[in-house]
Design a protein around this nucleic acid. Sequence first.
RNA 1: GCGCCUGUAGCUCAAUCGGAUAGAGCAACGGAUUUCUAAUCCGUAGGUUGGGUGUUCGAGUCACCUCAGGCGCGCCA
Length: 553
Amino acid sequence: MSSYMFSQRTRANSMDWSDCGVTHRWWNTQVIREDLRKILKDKFPGEEIIIDYVPKDKDGDYYTNLAFKIASREGADPMAIANSIAEQISDPIIEKISVHRPAFINFTLNERYLQEQISKEITPDIGEGRRVLVEYVSANPTGPINVVSARAAAVGDALVKMLRKTGYQAYAEYYVNDAGRQTDLLAESITQRRIELSGGRAQIPENGYHGEYLKEVAKEIIAEGLETYEDIKKYAIDYFVKDHKKVMSDFGVDFDVWTRESDVYRSSDVDKALQILKEKNLTYSEEGALFFKTTAFGDDKDRVIITSDGRNTYLLPDIAYHLNKLERDYAQLVNIWGPDHHGRIKGILGGIQALGFTRDRLRILIVQEVKIKEHGRLVTMSKRAGTFTSLSDLLQRIDKDVVRFFFLMRSSSQHLDFDIDLAMKQSDENPVYYVQYAHARIKSIIRFAAQKEIGLKKNADASLLRESEELTLIKDILKYPEVLSDAVRNLEPYMITYHLIELARDFHSFYQKHRVVADDIQLTQARLYLINKVALTIKAGLELLGVSCPEEM
RNA sequence: GCGCCUGUAGCUCAAUCGGAUAGAGCAACGGAUUUCUAAUCCGUAGGUUGGGUGUUCGAGUCACCUCAGGCGCGCCA
């Protein structure tokens, strides 16, 4: 059932999902696009109907490319097919159908229909109550949260909110890698810092953690009087877990569950996963190490799960953890990983299939790199050189709303340049204020109207809204649920951000041209009704993005 | 050596299973406010989508080649 939950747009962040059996692309969501699709579907059963938006400044609102499809299949003249289709279609919601070369069929919606739609509350129910677990950030407790994790946090939190809004039972989980080799390196590195603080010379392991921030932890460890390796390790891990929890909370990101890798070890999951792999004859020993035959699931080579010196590699507990998650009965797992974890994808998907689940139960989203740009120059980030920017550094300098908005302005599968100078500007150059300002402006108008004893009516006469700017706003509002469902389907919050910017722009444009509070009381009330809808839409959208929405600015 | 990502206007990015004349913001230039917030609006300019070949009615999008930048991988996560 989960196979059609999310579409597989073949993008950077996904892999080849072509074998995931995705059958549904559109949901029955009461949106206009669906109404149109249904009209065509009734007439042309068996055809795949694509409805898209007509580019701005073109004739019509929506178009279909159906004529191309039929024409190319039947070797017929596309224009003739298009004209023939156009003649066969008629419906009260369609004002006009026009055919444009080479063979687009454009639909102009009926004005009356649009005006009526505005009073409807539409929220697409895509999830139908299905349980989804989104795991994100999951930074190792070996240092501060970096900017890529920060981006993942913004994306993950927005996704969880979006999924909840559209009918999923979505949960946010943070996986703490508090076991394994990297925590040993952490403890060793701190021990060396401790020696350094006592006047000795630090000999931090080659692949250890060289950041200055460990000195702070070492000081606390001295103050606490901790001596044993295990105590130091535990203290250090707790220190960073606590730090991560605080930073996430400062960033406004809440997790439902914090799972620790050490808990996965304590449970029987690792043994159980290993047992299953062995039983299915998917392991073999070679040169003293135990291999998992990931090539059986399309990997280019098999992966080591137990090293020749008897240690688990990350893959085994990873598989065990995913077994644990799947057994908690989620219809769909979503993992958000940084670009440096790309190499893990094949192994974990192989693991999931080995455990008897279909690979589409897990969708992995790779959130791409973030580069910090300041004074027009890119700041190279290096943990080693100690020149990396942490999320808490960022939040100290830049408002949380701005940070989140910036992270959610771009497709998460694309590299992102974070322009510090632009982010710090509290001016018109900063797009986050542009959207917030539209909302505040509307609220101000509503307050102004209230002073004049003109209140918001529940049912204003929408038929008075006939100016092109008003109809544009109506369409924007009606488009919002469509955008939301697209964004959920693609797991891409930026689509919402874009639409909010467009909506704000169309509002500012309307505002410039038309007065809301005027002598014509009927029209005033209709416009108040409209702009209130705009404000509600902006507010709803910003809420999903985790960006505040002030009443005045 | 192999794998992945990226390359679109001066800068940052869009372009929805391949669709119309490739769109926004910022920066630049020129305008707009006696009235509800100028953190606003309107306009001008800016492009051989890194390059090439191919598939197609149609390519920024797909295939192959090539150039450039980034990331990852060989018993670490």
